[in-house]
Amino acid sequence: MQRVNMIMAESPGLITICLLGYLLSAECTVFLDHENANKILNRPKRYNSGKLEEFVQGNLERECMEEKCSFEEAREVFENTERTTEFWKQYVDGDQCESNPCLNGGSCKDDINSYECWCPFGFEGKNCELDVTCNIKNGRCEQFCKNSADNKVVCSCTEGYRLAENQKSCEPAVPFPCGRVSVSQTSKLTRAETVFPDVDYVNSTEAETILDNITQSTQSFNDFTRVVGGEDAKPGQFPWQVVLNGKVDAFCGGSIVNEKWIVTAAHCVETGVKITVVAGEHNIEETEHTEQKRNVIRIIPHHNYNAAINKYNHDIALLELDEPLVLNSYVTPICIADKEYTNIFLKFGSGYVSGWGRVFHKGRSALVLQYLRVPLVDRATCLRSTKFTIYNNMFCAGFHEGGRDSCQGDSGGPHVTEVEGTSFLTGIISWGEECAMKGKYGIYTKVSRYVNWIKEKTKLT
């Protein structure tokens, strides 16, 4: 034993070699072989497995989906700052455009905790909710729209109204504003409101030439003092309507412009014939205590009207009353817009006519005020429907199939267009061939041609 100890002390290297040989010859039971080890760690190889990531292109799944990435790591994937920024906006807080917040056709661009709407022409605001041009839906104005110097929408209202708090709607500024039905039992019968379409306001006024200088022999019209197929109006439903009495009662109609003036057809009036105007009328054979009678003290036909040349060209006249009318729910003026808007309103496509005229061709006159909704007829169809001249200051309205029309005794009465609950004068009943005849239409004086003249002559002093 002493000898062994001496050998170990003198030859430590020998001992180490012996131990190493023993270990190498022993069977290893701690580690699995290569094949079995792979069965336990069965993990798919990654895209760049075996390579240094710093030297390969980034992978979106590896960089940002398996674990949260930084902007720089995302930049490695896209290799483009702009594309990385677009991805980053949604990656950080989701897609803010998912709810489609942009209105009126706006395009949404996502941002971090926010979004941006790219608005089409005519709109602005956070969600493109603000109209900035009158060309689109009248700028959301209830009545009139004008573009300011910086191309912003400025709404306005006709006389007797003021802008509401929203700067879009119009509200009454006087007790009985024009064009409004205020009798409670008839307010439910107000005709369907007309909503502004998209309009090209630059070209809204037709490029028409008034044929002022045409000389033409007097034409022989049949029954051209021209509501057939209409309905009984309720008291106060058309408070701007008046009836004219002269040699015979209810020979023509008219509309209240203001307390002192009536507008009617020029062919209705004769110099030297006494005319009485009755406002607030409903049943011409009954006294309903809503009527107001006034005498006409002055007749002003349009300066281009000449019955000797043509009885229905420039067929418009103004009547001055001896005493002002007292405005109330049964006696209310009709609204008159400017030339541009009167023309736009007419193009809405349908209007209402009213009167006490004959209820059928050569038949009896109506006792109760009649009204009828009539569609506008395109000019080409209008011209083809008659052998008589249709001037540019006239328009056609009615039904091709016949059966409904204005008729004798309705002449001078109103053709009105309702705009968001307020009625505007767009025409004056003038003439036609018979009444409600198939293929024939009622012919009306186009008020847009005469609004400046009306307003100039009827100013209240």
Rank of each mutant, 00 (worst) to 15 (best):
F31G: 15
F224H: 10
I284C: 04
S220K: 12
L460K: 14
G179D: 01
K39F: 08
N328E: 02
P44E: 13
H361L: 13
S99Y: 04
F87T: 15
R449M: 14
A164H: 11
Y115L: 01
P175Y: 05
S156H: 10
E418A: 13
W453A: 00
V447Y: 00
V377Q: 08
D378K: 14
Y312I: 10
N48P: 15
K89Q: 13
D212P: 07
Y450K: 02
C119W: 00
K455A: 06
T133W: 04
H289T: 11
E82R: 08
G432H: 06
L327Q: 03
N80D: 15
I284Q: 07
C157F: 01
H400C: 06
F360G: 10
S70Y: 11
T381W: 08
S365D: 12
G421P: 02
A233T: 08
I443S: 03
Y305K: 02
E86A: 15
H361C: 05
V92Q: 15
N245L: 08
V77P: 15
K109V: 10
Q143E: 00
A265F: 01
S448R: 02
V331F: 01
S156Y: 14
I15W: 07
L60F: 09
N258P: 00
M8V: 07
N151A: 08
V374S: 04
P414W: 03
I429D: 08
A9V: 09
E129I: 01
F71I: 15
L383M: 08
K387H: 12
I262G: 02
E281F: 10
V195G: 13
T332M: 07
F196D: 12
V269H: 03
G229L: 09
S385R: 13
V257H: 00
T16H: 09
D93W: 04
P301E: 06
Y91I: 14
E323V: 14
S148L: 08
T29M: 14
E208P: 11
S329Q: 07
I334S: 01
E72L: 15
S25M: 14
P324D: 05
Q241N: 09
A192N: 12
W431C: 14
P239M: 01
N135Y: 04
L346S: 03
M437Q: 13
Y441C: 03
E288A: 07
E86D: 14
G402H: 06
Y305P: 02
T209F: 08
H282N: 12
K89C: 04
N48W: 08
G402F: 15
A233R: 05
K440L: 03
P101H: 03
D410Y: 07
E418P: 12
G160V: 00
A266H: 02
P44K: 04
S11I: 14
C117K: 01
D232W: 12
S448L: 02
M65L: 05
D150R: 09
C128Y: 00
D405L: 14
V377W: 03
E340V: 10
R62V: 04
V243S: 12
E193V: 11
C407H: 05
C102E: 00
V257D: 00
G13Y: 12
S430Q: 06
T417K: 01
T84V: 06
E10F: 13
E116I: 05
G179V: 00
P120R: 11
K455N: 08
I17Q: 03
G280S: 02
Q370V: 03
D212F: 10
F424W: 13
S406L: 13
C435F: 03
S448D: 13
A317P: 01
V183D: 08
D405P: 14
Q216S: 13
N80W: 03
L23I: 11
G432M: 06
W261P: 01
G402S: 14
D131C: 06
G412T: 11
E66P: 06
R62I: 04
S107E: 12
L130R: 08
V447P: 03
F123T: 05
R3D: 06
E54M: 10
T190I: 13
F144K: 02
G13D: 04
S217T: 11
C155P: 00
G58L: 07
E231K: 11
M65C: 05
R180Y: 06
C18A: 10
L41R: 14
S448C: 03
V199N: 12
A9H: 13
P172K: 06
Y22P: 03
G125E: 00
L24A: 09
Q57V: 10
E281R: 11
R43Y: 05
E171N: 08
V56H: 15
G94A: 11
Q370C: 05
P175R: 11
P172G: 07
N222S: 12
Y161I: 00
N245K: 13
G432F: 05
G125L: 00
V257W: 02
E67F: 03
N147F: 12
N135V: 06
N151P: 08
E320L: 04
P12W: 07
V353D: 01
T133N: 12
N59G: 11
S448A: 14
E27R: 06
K347G: 14
V451T: 05
I275C: 03
R191N: 12
C97W: 02
D338E: 08
E79P: 15
D322F: 02
E286Q: 11
E434V: 10
C102V: 00
T426H: 02
E434T: 14
E340H: 13
V199G: 11
F388K: 12
T190R: 08
G272S: 11
Q96H: 09
G403P: 15
A317D: 00
A337D: 00
K440Q: 14
W431N: 13
K311I: 07
A250N: 12
K109S: 06
T386L: 09
D131T: 15
D198I: 09
V242M: 00
N304A: 09
S354Y: 08
T133H: 05
D315I: 00
H282Y: 13
Y352I: 14
A308C: 06
G236R: 06
K455R: 11
E231P: 10
V92D: 15
Q167W: 08
I297D: 03
L372K: 14
V183N: 11
V248S: 11
P375F: 10
S182E: 06
P175D: 06
T84Q: 09
D200H: 06
E27L: 03
G160D: 07
C407I: 07
G413L: 06
S217C: 06
Y22C: 11
T389C: 05
F348I: 09
N36D: 13
C119S: 01
E27C: 05
E73A: 15
E320F: 02
N306C: 05
D200F: 10
H400F: 10
F345R: 00
T389Q: 15
G58K: 14
G246L: 04
G122Q: 07
K459N: 15
V447E: 00
G253S: 07
V248A: 07
K293N: 06
T461I: 08
N59M: 04
I316M: 03
C145L: 00
N135W: 04
I454K: 00
T209R: 09
N38W: 08
C178D: 01
Q241R: 07
S187N: 06
K247I: 10
N138A: 04
S187L: 11
R379A: 08
I7K: 14
V419Q: 05
L325F: 11
C119E: 00
L460F: 13
T389W: 13
L244G: 01
I344E: 10
G439T: 10
F78R: 15
A207S: 13
D95Q: 05
L60H: 15
S411C: 06
S350V: 10
P197M: 11
S49A: 06
G13A: 10
W240Y: 03
Y22R: 03
H415V: 03
W88F: 15
V326C: 08
S385N: 11
G280F: 02
E320Y: 03
T158P: 04
D338G: 08
G398L: 04
C157I: 00
E61C: 03
K137F: 08
T85L: 07
N328W: 02
V154Q: 13
G254M: 00
K188Y: 13
S448Q: 05
S148C: 05
G160I: 00
Y441I: 11
A337N: 00
E129V: 02
E418T: 07
I40N: 15
E82N: 13
C268H: 00
C134L: 02
I428G: 00
H302E: 02
T84E: 10
T458N: 00
T218I: 09
E456H: 10
I214N: 09
N452Q: 13
P197R: 09
N42A: 12
A26V: 10
A436C: 07
R373K: 15
S329P: 14
G427W: 01
V326W: 07
A380P: 13
G230C: 10
G351D: 01
P172Y: 04
K446G: 08
E259R: 06
L383G: 15
A397G: 09
R140C: 04
L163G: 01
L425Q: 03
E281V: 14
I299A: 07
V273L: 13
P172S: 08
K168N: 06
V92K: 15
Q96G: 08
